[in-house]
Nucleic acid binder design. Structure first.
Lengths: 208, 208
DNA sequence: GTCTATACAACGATAGAC
DNA sequence: GTCTATCGTTGTATAGAC
């Protein structure tokens, strides 16, 4: 507990104005951006509300005011590095036997756009937090199964989707989070040639 | 590495003795065992030094004394929930064309032994902690590459190892951490039949 | 004037260090 | 064992938009 209210040891470089800000500024958006950055750098537990508020240049209490707590802010900030549904829709048209190649190529392209850091964050968040795990579970079940597989494969779409998801999840994790060589530095062509046949088997091949 | 299995007592209900312990007992080993249990149950951040010390029946200060801090204890404790090297060695003898089946079968057996919870926390620790990520990186590079692949496949052992690792990592994560159905509840035979051909291709098949 | 976004202070909890 | 730092959260007074 702190009782030293008399002395003023605190010196902030920039005096923050109290009360409502002038019309232009938007605390909510600033918090979301800061949250994405800080969660990306430190993970869920490592990121503190105070860090995020600092980065956004606002008071920590704003997190509660706008989002209702750290966890809710996390969920709001986890607003997808790229829209997976859109990516899959793009890959669907064309030869079904080469669907896997198109999917992997597009995913690698999107993942590498930010140097993989944004994806790494998402994966770490998913791994370390129940809420994020639930989000991914829902995504795999809904988008992957009913959007892709029902269009190309008749039998066991759920099993195919989870198998395909496990391969892509593992690939993403090893490449962008764990950064194991040589996979971390391999070019897209190599990865596509290596992984596409396996993914294709999960999607449309013969399963037990 | 194996530390001597000196009579390590279970913690439950044992009254805490004071002063120097009799010759046979080993605080270091007790802490390591306690650390494995607690890290497995709560993850890295969720596990506290006090919990571990409590479980080991020793003072928290012993963690600093013997290991120099929580992180160092973690590294020391993460010396295998089940020995992957041994598992791979067991799977090596036999028809090389069915190596993947044997590996997956054995891994599933070990993973499921604890209901998957121990594996789940290990994976989460790997995902959320730099140290653990480094450990896995080293494991994939050293054990997988030089122990398995050099015995069965001549070309690109590192790439094969990382690809195989990504598939098994993804499978483990989706099944035990994310618990996505139907993969989470699928029986071993189904998973083996589904995944083994893909893993086999990474291990010994034709690669670009 | 009313409403609300804001800043500041402090709380109880807890974990790691000494 | 004790101490200290810091966490997420809450209460409250205030400044500015409407």
């Amino acid at each position: 507990m702190k009782e030293e209210a008399a002395g003023v040891p605190e010196e902030s470089g920039a005096p923050r104005r109290r009360g409502r800000r002038p019309g232009g500024s938007d605390t909510r958006v600033a918090l979301l951006e800061a949250a994405r950055t800080v969660f990306a750098e430190r993970g869920y537990d490592g990121a503190t509300v105070r860090m995020i508020a600092d980065r956004a240049g606002v008071d920590p209490a704003m997190v509660n005011h706008w989002f209702g707590g750290k966890e809710k802010l996390f969920v709001a900030a986890l607003d997808l590095p790229a829209d997976p549904g859109a990516i899959l829709s793009e890959a669907l048209p064309g030869d079904p036997d080469h669907l896997a190649e198109r999917v992997i190529a597009r995913l690698l392209q999107v993942w590498d756009e930010t140097g993989g850091t944004q994806l790494a964050t998402l994966l770490q968040s998913i791994a370390s937090h129940e809420v994020a795990a639930g989000l991914l579970r829902e995504f795999i079940g809904r988008v992957l199964v009913h959007k892709v597989l029902s269009a190309v494969a008749p039998d066991r779409p759920e099993l195919r989707a989870t198998l395909a998801g496990s391969q892509m999840f593992g690939l993403a994790f090893v490449r962008y989070v764990l950064k194991v060589e040589p996979l971390a530095s391999a070019d897209h062509a190599t990865i596509i040639a290596a992984v596409a046949p396996n993914l294709q088997r999960y999607l449309t091949g013969r399963l037990p």
